[in-house]
Simulated assay, not measured.
Amino acid sequence: MYSNSFNIKKITCLIAASIILVLTSCKDTSSTLSDVLVGDEVASRTGFYFDTVISISIFSLEKDGNYSFKERADKILDGCMQISDRYDKLLSAEKENSDIWNINNSNQKETVVSKDTFELIETSIKYANLSNGAFNPSLGSIISLWNFTSNDNQIIPDKKDIEKNIKHTDFCNVIVNKDKSSIIISDNDTKINLGAIAKGFIADKIKDYLCKEKVKSAIINLGGNVLLVGSKPNGSDFKVGIEKPFEGSSTYACVVNASDKSIVTSGVYERYFEKDDKIYHHILDPKTGYPVENSLYSVSIISDKSVDGDALSTACFVLGLDKGMELIEKTKGVEAVFITNDYKLHTSSGFPKIK
């Protein structure tokens, strides 16, 4: 999704701790925290990064005779927060001297960035090409015109401002040099914003770290981007609830069983405001600069890597049901459920059985 901050996607995992809801029942998909835990072994940590609350919960890890579960888990969670802090400072378009801020303020000069930033920009361009621009990392100048993150100053941008800035959103203006790990923006008015993909990228990096630390079962929730590490300690799948649009965070359109997967949703119902009985939401159409207008309420992607789900959920929403589903069906290793404004669920051919 396109927004001026990272806190732009929401999905709820039914059995995690902290900001992910812990429910004692959900119709025939009842689940409790004791479902997940072995004895009292659980360690959770919350933090505030990327303009949103994040939560990481560890349920099982490889034993170490020198340390207790809690001692090891707490140290690992410290590392997760350090990773989050680093990327928060590196990838934000708003934080001065971040890699993205430096690129956007380079005045068309070559900007050397970290390998991680370069990797994410390369991935963003890949998805921009794959989706024919439906996913666009160069909408920064348009995103800055809208405000979906607070109740103040929620106004429709001036048409002239949108028409002026939309001319500077061609992602081909972003030129990458892999040898130097550098970026040049050929149009001084083109601005990068990675809010529609950054949390997925960061979630993957945190999962890599957890696996390196021999964590066997965990849930990473970066403001709603859910990434599962392994399965529950008893070997069964986690149950993940996909929110029913406009019905509140405790009402689900469906529940899927999954292990070691990413689940990311893009929907119109989390960041929006109303003017003259019309909803203006934060998923912007790269062709117009205005919120996408189609029959969709949300798109949820199941994938191995969260960065893929992040980019595809936005791209597919912008493309709409037919073209979006076509993209999913020809993209290996990903599945999707589209929810239309009549609340019907449309699933890809390999989407797991839902309840």
Results as ranks from 00 to 15, higher is better:
residue 305 K to R: 03
residue 66 N to P: 11
residue 97 N to V: 09
residue 223 G to S: 01
residue 288 T to R: 03
residue 203 A to T: 04
residue 129 N to D: 14
residue 185 I to M: 08
residue 151 N to M: 06
residue 217 S to G: 03
residue 215 V to C: 08
residue 309 G to W: 03
residue 331 T to H: 04
residue 124 S to N: 11
residue 183 I to D: 13
residue 92 S to A: 11
residue 16 A to G: 15
residue 10 K to V: 07
residue 21 L to T: 10
residue 99 D to Y: 12
residue 313 S to D: 00
residue 208 D to W: 02
residue 23 L to R: 10
residue 225 N to L: 05
residue 116 D to W: 04
residue 175 I to P: 06
residue 17 A to C: 15
residue 231 S to A: 14
residue 64 D to E: 14
residue 57 S to K: 05
residue 296 L to G: 09
residue 115 K to C: 10
residue 52 T to Q: 15
residue 154 Q to K: 02
residue 31 S to P: 01
residue 197 I to M: 11
residue 97 N to W: 11
residue 336 A to C: 05
residue 320 G to S: 01
residue 201 F to I: 07
residue 220 I to N: 02
residue 316 C to K: 09
residue 167 K to R: 09
residue 321 L to F: 03
residue 110 E to I: 05
residue 41 E to S: 13
residue 285 D to R: 00
residue 185 I to Y: 14
residue 258 A to D: 06
residue 295 S to Y: 06
residue 243 E to K: 03
residue 169 T to Y: 05
residue 256 V to D: 05
residue 77 L to S: 07
residue 248 G to Q: 01
residue 309 G to Y: 01
residue 117 T to M: 07
residue 292 V to C: 10
residue 27 K to T: 10
residue 303 S to Q: 02
residue 258 A to C: 02
residue 53 V to T: 12
residue 181 S to M: 15
residue 307 V to K: 08
residue 238 F to L: 03
residue 198 A to G: 01
residue 57 S to P: 00
residue 37 L to D: 00
residue 26 C to P: 00
residue 301 I to T: 06
residue 342 D to K: 15
residue 341 N to I: 02
residue 269 Y to G: 05
residue 213 E to V: 09
residue 19 I to V: 11
residue 261 K to S: 06
residue 269 Y to V: 11
residue 83 I to L: 15
residue 145 L to I: 06
residue 334 V to K: 05
residue 152 D to T: 15
residue 348 S to L: 02
residue 38 V to Q: 14
residue 192 I to L: 15
residue 107 N to V: 09
residue 118 F to A: 06
residue 45 R to T: 13
residue 324 G to T: 01
residue 252 Y to K: 08
residue 208 D to V: 12
residue 317 F to L: 01
residue 234 N to Y: 05
residue 334 V to A: 02
residue 318 V to N: 00
residue 298 S to Q: 03
residue 251 T to S: 13
residue 278 K to E: 08
residue 191 K to P: 01
residue 221 N to F: 02
residue 40 D to S: 11
residue 135 F to Q: 01
residue 102 N to T: 14
residue 284 L to V: 08
residue 302 I to L: 14
residue 244 K to F: 00
residue 20 I to N: 14
